[in-house]
Amino acid sequence: MNITVVKRNGEREPYDANKINLAIERAAEGLEDSIAWVTQIASELELTLFDGISTQQLDEAVIQVALQNVKDDPAFDVVAARLLVKTIYKRVLGDYESPEELKALHAQHFAENVHRGVDEGLLDERLVQMFDFDRLAQALEPTRDGLLKYIGVVTLNNRYGIKGRNGDPLEVPQYFWMRIAMGLSLNEQDPTAHALTFYEKMSKLEYLAAGSTLVNGGTSYPQLANCFVMEMQDDIEHIAKTTRDVMWLTKGTGGIGLAVTKLRAQGSPIRSNNTSSTGPIPFMHTIDSVLRAVSRGGKKFGALCFYIENWHMDFPEFLDLRQNSGDPYRRTRTANTAVWISDEFMKRVENDEPWYLFDPLEVQDLNELYGSAFSKRYAEYVEMAEAGTLNMFKKIGAREQFKAILISLQGTSHPWLTWKDTINNRALNNNSGTIHLSNLCTEICLPQDVDNVSVCNLASINLSQHVVDGAMDWAKIEESARIAVRQLDNLIDITRSSVAEADYSNEQNRAVGLGVMGFTDVIERFGYSYESEESYDLIDEIMEHVSYAAIDESANLAQERGSYPNFEGSRWSQGIVPLDTVDLTEADRGVPIEVNRTTRLDWDRLRVKVKGGMRNATLMAIAPTASIGLVAGTTPGLDPQFSQIFSRSTSSGKFLEINRNLVEALRERGLWESTREDILRSQGDIQNIESIPQALKDTFKTSFQLSPYSFLEVAARAQKWIDQAISRNMYLDTRDMDDLMSIYMGAWKRGVKTTYYLHMKPRHTAEQSTVKVNKAEQINAQGSSAPRKGFGATTGSSTPVVAASAAPKKGFGFGGAAKAGE
């Protein structure tokens, strides 16, 4: 059967295997065993062809076939990434023959594509007014696309790249980086020079701006801030106003934290109409519905986390918000939940003492207090309750409630545990009010009130791009931190939101959060175990350098541009740096904070300098980096390796990722070929594979195999340098409640400010029951002479070419190619 390919213009042409082979060959250039890879992809591609396949389907089929083979060798991911980038080049720039021609095309089309974006109302018109396009175009370096893994190219293209009104893609990856860099230089005196500096860093993946910035940077709708943190006041006007604000912030993209502690409890009196309140739960459900209503055509729900203090009368119902069963009108299926816990509560848990719940209407100052002041006032309210002078209260055991929180956490992964007193007592911006909550991802620590919706602006240094000759490049880390802080500071003057209180707070505090990602990627390359002193010391040293450089740069910016408006009266203005607040917190808590206090840099010099002025109220926060970690091609935040192989979902379907560091380490020892099938069979767990040496097993433990205390120790050592917080995902094998209580008590004792999702190891894991899909054998059985690599590799054997009529009918790639038993 002859196969014809339908071109974009509708014309048909005969399928040209040579042309496809050449494209695959180019994509495999420079890789070890490239000829074998080309043959393997080409012969498997034949299985997926059918008459009338479009050129776009053909491109996708080649990529999917390459991806299917990632389990044999991560090099296939490189091939898939290159093939995908090439399809983007073709659509945006047209055909090209050589790398030189590609670079020339990049330069040639850059200005016209930006102009088109402006003409169509997609991009900020200042982009075509303020920049020297010749200089920018010449700096574009397409070879940097080679840094992207397949998932990175997909994420950039699908989530961040600008498309014309007619759906045409307008950006190749390097246009995208340059556009973001330009969009963050609009307030500079020499915008071209700064755009080039920012472009150099981001296009080399040395640091990345966070999601909202990458979505909206340089566009006509520059909502660039990442996190919005607000509290709902106890009046119906403000509840309505908050609902409106959530709608607008969701429309603009941005994670939201929302505290509901101030809302009076269910049954609490309402004087104006002589009735009683329904409490906060129904209003939370209303906002939960808003998150689904404003959802970009239903494709992307809004993202929000509700916070409440655990002395609120309705806290037991708050714990049920994420339960699957029960009244759906008293559930939040979309929004997340977090609990805002005091030192007083943790002490009462330790001492097995009672805990009292109150109606906020009767204890109105409690939500504004923290630390020892909270404890004192709380004790007074307890006395009033016992004396019968409060209308509503409930007495329970502190341990009983702690267990209830942890049982809910086990079952629903909510509420996340966050410690209000560690956060408030360590705050350097404590002159501008109480911090009532953290944000969607639990890394932000900023105050808010009725006039202030706090805002944070994030970026993350990619640690894996800061390793040179097997060691951290401290000078490069410092450089990245300094440039990132300037870029973040610029963002504040450029971004806008639809909530006046957010813009106001952003201007008054200029809060930024510089974090890191790729920690596990780095320690694996160093051969360290996540749960080792080497790793703990390394994260300590990394964050000390990031913290020092970020603070120093903010002080420099204050000299150049002036301090942030709320600087006077802040702890910065008293010469205090984040590390100093550990002792201050310990003194207030009256219980030791169990964290190493080693320092390496000249902090006395910096203490003097910060007194003179700071440009930003906060400087550091470690975000989850779930999406930008994909673009950077590294492990997210401080997270451990979840598995050596795992499934990733993209808009083009699921595909398999394999830990390249492990493959490399096994290859160095000549073990990869002999162990890879065992690794796949064991779902990415190498611990029971005999031939793998113990040292590698220690380095490549997965999340559920590590001690949960190692997550806490890494967080605590990083936290001591960070003025905001860390999105600390937790992974637990144990379901023992005493263990769980000890672990979360341990987090508080180490001064960890917040924890994020709790991932419980599933009780049962799926067995590898499916017979191995062995396309190699299928092809060989039909006579292929192609040399085989990887799983199913066979020696010898004969020929091929599968008839087109044998092509699967289920589309491309995964699930599309022949399946065992079908």
């Binding site: 299917q68 389990k71 966070a210 999601g211 909202s212 993209t253 941005g254 994670g255 992307k300 729900f301 809004g302 993202a303 699957n324 979309t334 997340n336 086990q410 079952g411 629903t412 992964s413 969607l440 991802c441 994030l458 975000a623 989850p624 980096t625 779930a626 999406s627 994909l630 997210p636 997270d639 979840f642 598995s643 192989i645 795992f646 499934s647 990733r648 979902s649 699921k654 595909f655 398999l656 990722e657 796949l680 779902q683 990415g684 999340s703 999105s727 999702y757 709790l758 991932h759 419980m760 599933p762 894991t765 799926a766 590898q768 029951s769 499916t770 017979v771 191995k772 995964f814 399946k819």
Partner: peptide, 30 residues
């Protein structure tokens, strides 16, 4: 329910763990 319980996917005939980051809803700010 706890999203981490949805932890296994089948790809190409193999059961493999799902990247936990796929389960997070934090990409609005990230």
């Amino acid at each position: 329910m706890n999203p981490s319980a949805e932890g296994t996917a089948t790809i190409d005939g193999y059961a493999v763990p799902v990247d936990p980051m796929d389960l997070l809803r934090c990409d609005s700010c990230q």
